[in-house]
């Protein structure tokens, strides 16, 4: 049992007015500084003394980081856009419904009012409910650092549990979801103990089907490996085929093989692997039924 302390250790609080100021500060202070967006995870871990940053860099005074908007190529979600705003956004519910559905399963309204989608990605928990739909929608992230910016596919963002490619001076400025993913057939499924608990297994699937043939498939799986991952073998089995039950079953089995689950208090590794199969099979079925 980890003790949750009441008081936070002292730190210096910095509220930059621009991204450039933030990256400058982060570059100077490196690992001693932590970025604060919604604070759900950061303040929690500071209370537990899991991390004790000397500096907190709050993004809240940087104007123009809270938005959901579309341009010619992407739907963009800003670094300070909270989960509740995304869940309720008409364009996301309409065109990228698996993202809204996944966030809907994050049960506490308080956490969704505070927490941001970008913050959820940056803590790099394998149990994220935000990452799998974004993997399945082919999302990218815009990272901004001292020397410039780069855009990376979300599946290249993660290295390990709690680890990303983000450099000490970088922040994730926005999430980019390609317009080509709008209204794609998709499904998100999650297995949990209680409404507010984190996933034992979660799965997001998108399918492009033309003339009864699966032209594209993205199968993203969470909570059963050090990072959320794309089950590429499963996708390979689906693409180019008619999605008959035996093809779906083969893909579901492949996804289960690709998983690297652990045993913990929520489930055994064996059970998790079996449930990857079940959830992938069901998610493909659910996505197929959707008539976009």
């Amino acid at each position: 049992m980890t003790v949750v302390t009441r008081n936070l250790k002292p730190f210096e609080y910095f509220e930059p007015k621009t991204i450039a100021e933030a990256t400058q500060f982060l570059s100077t202070h490196g690992a001693k500084a932590k970025v604060l967006a919604g604070g759900v995870d950061l303040i929690f871990r500071m209370r537990r003394r899991q991390i004790q940053p000397e500096y907190i860099v709050s993004l809240q005074s940087i104007p123009g980081l809270d938005y959901i908007r579309k341009d010619g190529e992407n739907l963009k979600i800003g670094a300070l856009t909270n989960l509740r705003t995304i869940e309720l956004s008409p364009i996301i519910r309409e065109d990228y419904s698996i993202l809204a559905e996944a966030i809907h399963t994050i049960a506490s309204i308080q956490v969704k009012n505070m927490g941001t989608a970008v913050g959820n990605l940056c803590i790099a928990t394998p149990a994220s409910d935000v990452a799998p739909p974004l993997f399945a929608l082919g999302a990218k992230l815009r990272l901004i650092g001292l020397s410039g910016e780069r855009i990376v596919p979300i599946e290249e963002f993660y290295l390990n549990v709690g680890q990303t490619i983000l450099q000490p001076d970088e922040i994730v400025a926005e999430i980019l979801i390609p317009n080509s993913s709008a209204k794609v057939r998709g499904a998100f499924l999650k297995l949990v103990r209680t409404a507010t608990d984190i996933a034992k297994v979660n799965v997001a699937v998108t399918l492009t089907i033309e003339d009864n043939i699966c032209r594209d498939a993205k199968v993203a799986v969470g909570s059963v490996a050090p990072t959320v991952f794309r089950a590429k073998k499963a996708e390979g089995i689906l693409i180019g085929e008619k999605l008959k039950p035996e093809v779906v079953e083969e893909a579901a089995e492949a996804a289960a093989e690709e998983a690297k689950p652990i045993t913990d208090l929520r489930s055994t590794a064996e059970y998790r692997r079996e449930m990857v199969k079940v959830l992938v099979r069901r998610a493909i079925g659910k996505a197929q039924e959707r008539g976009n």
Binding site: Y13, L36, G39, V40, I43, F44, R47, I56, S58, Q60, R84, I109, Q110, V111, N113, M114
Partner: peptide, 19 residues
């Protein structure tokens, strides 16, 4: 510890007052 900030429920134990 829920309170409403600008009408929205948030967790006051995980919110820095300064914010």
């Amino acid at each position: 510890c829920t309170v409403l900030v600008e009408g929205k429920p948030v967790l006051s134990c995980l919110t820095l007052a300064i914010r």
